[in-house]
């Protein structure tokens, strides 16, 4: 039979406060309990989720990264944006109507590579526009 834990028992097992466990739930890293408020209980699945969070944190990952890691493993759709999220994006104007948007948090490109990419796009545009003019 599956073991049932109260929040207090779960908290003691992993040495994390009940409130921090609720915080992890709010971040989608740990599932909500089963049962109603008064009879809410947790299982080994919740315990495993918590241990996973602890292990990844020891590796230096942030909570957002841990969530992405978990979603890759379970093939869940990683979160796009939720209400209230703010994104910082570099918008590089290449030509009239052509812009390159770069989210530095997501890309692995270095600044040099981004500059080269911008130059390449600009170069392609210029070349092809000139070619078009020449063909006409």
């Amino acid at each position: 039979m599956e073991t049932h834990y109260s929040l207090a028992e779960l908290s003691q097992l992993v040495d994390i406060s009940a409130r921090t466990i609720r915080f992890y739930m709010s971040k989608g890293l740990v599932d909500k309990p089963l049962g109603a408020r008064k009879t809410a209980y947790y299982t080994d699945k919740h315990l495993q989720q918590l241990l996973t969070v602890i292990n990844w944190q020891k590796e230096g990952l942030s909570l957002d990264e841990i969530f992405q890691q978990q979603n890759q493993l379970t093939s869940k759709q990683p979160p796009q944006f939720k209400p209230g999220d703010v994104q910082v994006v570099h918008r590089i104007h290449i030509a009239e109507g052509v812009e390159l948007n770069v989210d530095l948090l997501k890309t692995h490109l270095s600044q040099t590579q981004i500059r080269r990419l911008s130059d390449d796009i600009y170069g392609w545009l210029t070349e092809n526009l000139e070619q078009e003019k020449a063909d006409v």
Binding site: S62, E65, V88, L104, K106, H108, S110
Partner: peptide, 28 residues
Amino acid sequence: RIPAFLRKHSDSTMDDIKFSLKSSFSDK
């Protein structure tokens, strides 16, 4: 104003400033 997690490296250090997911999100 640049968020704290982006203020990791000065312009004057390496040319190839790598914003890996780990260093970008890490609070360290």
